[in-house]
């Protein structure tokens, strides 16, 4: 019996974004169909995976996660090189020290660390602020300046603080992460506000906010999926690539933090699986850049992506 393969006809495509410079430059997006449906349209670039680097030794990581970065935890540049050794497509520097409840480190210091990390690796750099909107608005433009011309991805810009961050990105040739709280309407509106500042839509990456597996992943899944179908039907203000901040969500879950128990088994294996499953699920929804923490997770997610990028035999 012959089976007719049903093919959806989409009228539009996702926007394409290139990050970094030189040989290790990364391009994501540009798809003309839903994730991995090679028989239906073009998937010009595979999703990519980043590993996180902190600007100070992380306080709350389990020992086995810190152990993966033993010897480099106090040295962000060396840590970043380690991430590249592990196979990261990009490095995501998280500025924890600028948090007002932490050291409240000044912008110049953050800029110095970011410049050192950028100089240490050839892969594109993502810089994530501390999440306090006011502080990020003050720090990220300085970081943007210190990284001028390196075509980095800076964030997260929210509806409250996007103006100074976007201005810093425009002035120094970076892309921006536009972050919204699990709300597709707000995501679209923020993208419009940012493009009204004359940043091209191709220079925006959407952070829809995500939940880890068991912590609301389905909300993120359906929002990302809806963005993708919107993009394919011609909605340019939802057609930007999507970044998945997986590590930050997964490593605070009970499943990742609970030590070995007879019922739940070995903690490290469980935590890595949690990170891999969360990332893979959201990549299947339409995510483009997954930011992870454990190098084992990176290995599994990259393996999965490689298999999904093989064209179907029909």
């Amino acid at each position: 019996m012959t089976v007719t393969i049903a093919r959806e006809r989409w009228s539009s495509r996702c926007l394409e974004t290139t990050l970094g410079t030189g040989a290790r430059q990364v391009t994501v997006g540009g798809e003309t169909t839903l994730p991995f449906l090679h028989f239906e349209g073009e998937i010009p670039h595979p999703p990519v995976v980043a590993l996180e680097v902190f600007d100070a030794p992380p306080q709350e990581w389990p020992d086995f996660l810190s152990a993966a970065y033993e010897g480099v935890l106090g040295d962000p540049a060396a840590w970043a090189r380690k991430c590249v050794e592990y196979g990261a497509d990009l490095v995501a520097l998280r500025l924890t020290r600028i948090h007002p409840d932490s050291e409240n480190a000044p912008a110049e210091e953050a800029a110095r660390v970011a410049a050192a990390v950028a100089a240490a690796v050839e892969v594109p750099l993502i810089v994530l602020g501390c999440g306090v909107e006011e502080k990020d608005a003050a720090v990220l433009p300085e970081v943007a300046n210190a990284l001028a011309g390196k075509n980095c991805l800076l964030g997260c810009a929210t509806q409250e603080n996007y103006k100074s961050i976007v201005a810093g990105c425009i002035a120094n040739g970076h892309a921006v992460i536009a972050s919204s709280p699990l709300d597709i309407n707000l995501a679209k509106q923020l993208n419009i506000l940012i493009t009204e500042m004359n940043l091209e839509p191709e220079r925006i990456v959407i952070d829809p906010s995500i939940g880890a597996l068991g912590y609301g992943i389905e909300y993120a899944y359906s929002i990302i999926e809806r963005m993708r179908t919107g993009a394919l039907m011609g909605d340019r203000m939802l057609a930007m690539p999507v970044i998945l901040l997986v590590g930050q969500e997964v490593w605070k879950t009970k499943e990742a933090k609970t030590p070995d128990t007879p019922e739940w088994g070995e903690q490290e294996k469980r935590a890595v699986l949690w990170e891999v499953t969360t990332a893979a699920s959201l990549i299947h929804a339409g995510g483009h850049i997954a930011v992870l923490r454990h190098p084992e997770s990176l290995k599994y997610v990259k393996e999965h992506i490689a298999k999904m990028m093989q064209p179907q035999q029909y």
Partner: peptide, 8 residues
């Protein structure tokens, strides 16, 4: 519902 809502 032909287009995704946003304030603009």
């Amino acid at each position: 519902n032909k287009e995704i809502y946003c304030d603009s």
